[in-house]
Design a protein around this nucleic acid. Structure first.
Length: 231
DNA sequence: GCGACAG
DNA sequence: ATCTTGTCGC
């Protein structure tokens, strides 16, 4: 059973302690089968001025049709944690867990919108989610939290460069397609940095974001618009 | 003390 | 995350 503090810590001190414990349990080496069922998770927030809300969307994709979801899971509610850089997991994971639980099967791998180990305490939301679910996860972030890119990044799709922090390579900067801001790919849990980069590349379909995350992002937004239309 | 700061 | 029209480019 996962400690309550790993999901809903009562104080910032408890949250910080939980992240250190989770980071200590994170596995940065490969411990996964070649993924057949891959899930993508992303969260949407409420418009400015509206009450604080979070909507989590989980999309399950299979190898047959990498662009048609096998299933989706949705969860929404009022977050107990505000958005604080470095503590994103405590805000979104309660809803992400519910969204993933709504899927008919446990995925072999989850691509998460956000960082994995490329975090101040090595516990970004991808790592956090992976340890809690004990499932392989990869962090797919759209901007840097900590660290600096080393060297130059090519303009061509597929170009990469290391993201370094405190002398350690914590993520790979990836130009997923020409003319777009690069992605930051990091180990979440049970997936090595090299495998994470390979798998993200395999699930890219011509867009900036890999399909699992791209669809989760799109569907979360459509669900938001659909809900707004009903009001 | 100052600046940085995923979604 | 969200606020938002037109505009550049394949």
């Amino acid at each position: 059973m996962t400690p309550e503090d790993w999901i809903r810590p009562a104080t910032m001190e408890a949250a910080r302690a939980a992240q250190r414990e989770i980071a200590a349990r994170a596995e940065t080496a490969d411990r996964l089968e070649e993924p057949r069922l891959v899930a993508g998770v992303d969260c949407a927030g409420a418009p400015r001025g509206a009450p604080d809300r979070v909507r989590a969307m989980a999309v399950l994709l299979g190898l047959e049709n990498r662009s048609r979801p096998v299933a989706t899971g949705l969860a929404e509610g009022a977050p107990a944690f505000p958005y604080i850089p470095g503590f994103l997991g405590f805000r979104e994971i309660p809803f992400v867990l519910e969204a993933v639980a709504g899927l008919p099967r446990r995925p072999d791998l989850i691509l998460v919108d956000g960082h994995g180990v490329s975090h101040p305490r090595g516990c970004g939301i991808a790592t956090h989610l992976g340890v809690v679910l004990d499932l392989p996860t990869i962090g797919v972030a759209k901007s840097v939290l900590v660290g600096k890119m080393e060297g130059e990044l090519g303009e061509e799709a597929g170009s990469t460069a290391p993201l370094v922090w405190r002398g350690q390579r914590i993520a790979t900067v990836l130009r997923s397609r020409r003319g777009v801001q690069p992605l930051l790919i990091s180990t979440g849990h049970r997936v090595s940095q090299e495998t994470a980069l390979r798998l993200v590349g395999e699930w890219l379909a011509g867009y900036r974001l890999p399909e699992p995350t791209r669809l989760a992002d799109k569907l979360a937004g459509e669900a938001r618009r659909a809900a707004a239309t009903l009001l």
